[in-house]
Simulated scan of single mutants.
Amino acid sequence: MRVLQFGDSLLPVGAFSFSNGLESAVQLGVVRDLDSLREFVKAAVEQAATSDGVAVLSAFRAAAAGDVEGIDRADHAVFDRKLNEEMRTMTVRMGRKLAEMADRVLGPSVAGEWLARIRAGETPGCLPVGQALVFAALGLSERDAFAVHQYGVAGMMTNASLRMMKLHYLDVQALLFEVNADAEAAYARVVDHSLEDMAAFAPVFDVLASLHVGAHVRMFMN
């Protein structure tokens, strides 16, 4: 039940306000139908696994070991790899909201201590790290934390697609089911990676994000 609650796409951390780059992709015709949406979401999820997903595992292990410096290193590693302003805004806004929720719901925990450091300006407060700390505080597994992170990336984008494209909602659910089938294999690919191994290469995402900043009509914050 804890996994269900903290992995819920309707968790009040602001995911509804973001599209993870999909809005610009639709506006510019990069994504125009179900097939191109599938390719775009799959690419985003694959990039997430090898970048932010690695930080989830690193932060989870640091939390389990009581390594505060390790937690904050993972936090800075995520923030430093966001090449554009909107992606940085997304991750820290949602991360802080998750930390505030955890502090209220869980009480004193490693997540609450992290929130204090965010407020003091000692660490940026990125969402993947927040997810790791919440799951560590709940006594769940790093595998659960990684799965929820991956699901969140795909879920945010598929939910956004229904607000921008003419799609059957059941087709979108089938797409989400298909994309998430790779979560176990993605975990196996990165389980032994360190923060130095964090990497992502998807120039189209960065170009779309830079164009979105100057867009005249926007439904989403990124």
Rank of each mutant, 00 (worst) to 15 (best):
G70E: 01
C126W: 06
N222F: 02
D52E: 15
L98E: 07
A120W: 06
V172I: 09
N20I: 12
D197Y: 03
R73N: 04
E85R: 15
V110Q: 08
V68W: 08
G130S: 14
L4M: 12
T89Y: 09
V105K: 14
Q173N: 12
L211H: 03
R88T: 08
N222T: 06
M101Y: 11
I118A: 09
D33N: 14
V30Y: 08
V191I: 04
A188S: 12
V45L: 04
R81G: 07
A111L: 01
F60E: 01
F16Y: 11
L140C: 15
L28T: 15
R88F: 03
T50S: 10
E178K: 12
L176V: 12
E184H: 09
F60P: 00
V3P: 00
F18M: 10
R96H: 09
A44M: 14
A209N: 13
R61Y: 03
P128Q: 11
G95L: 03
H212Q: 08
T50H: 08
M94Q: 15
F135V: 04
A44E: 11
W114R: 12
G130Y: 04
H216G: 13
D171Y: 07
N180R: 10
R189Y: 02
M198K: 13
E46V: 12
F18C: 10
A99I: 06
M101V: 08
L11S: 02
T89W: 09
D206I: 14
S161C: 01
Q27T: 08
R96G: 07
R96A: 09
E39G: 08
F220H: 11
E39T: 13
D75S: 12
R163P: 00
D72F: 12
G139C: 06
H193K: 10
T91I: 06
M165F: 05
R119N: 12
S161Y: 00
G214E: 10
G53E: 05
A116G: 07
L167C: 03
L98M: 15
L10Y: 11
G112A: 13
E86P: 00
Q5R: 15
D75I: 04
L167F: 05
E46A: 15
F220Q: 07
M157W: 00
V217C: 04
A48S: 14
A59E: 00
E184N: 08
V172G: 03
P124C: 10
V148E: 02
A44R: 13
A137W: 03
L98D: 06
R73V: 00
S17F: 11
L37N: 05
H216I: 11
G214W: 09
D67S: 05
A136T: 04
E46R: 15
S141T: 13
R117M: 09
D171F: 05
A160I: 00
A64S: 14
F205T: 12
G112Q: 10
T50A: 03
S210K: 15
L57W: 02
A181P: 00
A202I: 09
D197V: 05
D33L: 04
L133W: 02
E113M: 14
D33C: 06
A59C: 01
L57I: 05
L138D: 03
F16M: 13
L106S: 07
D103Y: 04
E86S: 13
A116S: 14
G107Y: 01
